[in-house]
Design a protein around this nucleic acid. Structure first.
Lengths: 118, 118
DNA sequence: ATTATATATGAACAATTATTCACACGTTTA
DNA sequence: TAAACGTGTGAATAATTGTTCATATATAAT
């Protein structure tokens, strides 16, 4: 990759293992789900219980369309799943490696970044 | 927290361990650094070597102001550090728990999300 | 059955924010 | 001086977020 860089700083490392552009894109799309304070909180909640939209709206202090919008995003990327029961639709975190990794990541990052957190 | 939710679905879990709003915000700010394809790639590179702006620009196929902008963001959040040597400024990943966690996270997520990746 | 109500989603819009570029400026070296 | 490298600023474009209004779906009431 850096065979023709403006400057040669002499490192021999040639990035053989560097993910491809599409791979960086795919990963950034997933991380994009955790960019937003609202979405990360919704995801965290859904990692701990199953909830319907109206309750999530209440917890978040937001309108249901806004919450629904975030839920759709999370679902599109396979981080959460839903089921309908009567009038309500229940959401919870998907049982996938990705979702579990993100969940762990969030809790670890809270630990590291917010030392006062108990 | 959910003592007064519109619906009571009967879970006893009361989110005692739920991070506070500020904590979700802080974490989302950090993940925001990995939201962008460009920034995540820059960060990955800087986890593997030290580089100057002009080389990063070349690798990314972007103008130096754009790269500089991303570098400033990453630096503001403590994910990378810089040193000047002559005319050039060299950047590399910070030696912090946060940066290492993010680095591991990126590589793991590439593995999981891009199975074809070698 | 028809109507009304509750829940959730979709679409259009506005407001905010992010990304990138081009240009100008500051710093360092030759 | 002059050239190379990097950064700050402003502008243009694109993306994100949340609101409002309308629509679907399911249950309950009359």
């Amino acid at each position: 990759m850096n065979d023709f860089l403006p400057h040669d700083h002499g490192h021999s490392f040639r990035f053989e293992n560097m993910p491809k552009t599409e791979e960086f894109l795919a990963v950034s799309e997933i991380f994009k789900q955790l960019c937003d304070q609202t979405r990360i909180k919704i995801f965290w909640i859904l990692c701990h219980c199953e909830e319907c939209v109206i309750n999530l709206s209440s917890m978040m202090g937001m309108s249901s369309p806004a919450v629904s919008h975030h839920l759709r995003q999370l679902k599109t990327y396979g981080l959460i799943v839903s089921r309908r029961d009567g009038k309500e639709v229940y959401y919870k975190a998907a049982d996938t490696e990705q979702a579990q990794l993100l969940h762990k990541m969030i809790e670890k990052m809270v630990e590291i970044s917010c030392p006062a957190a108990g």
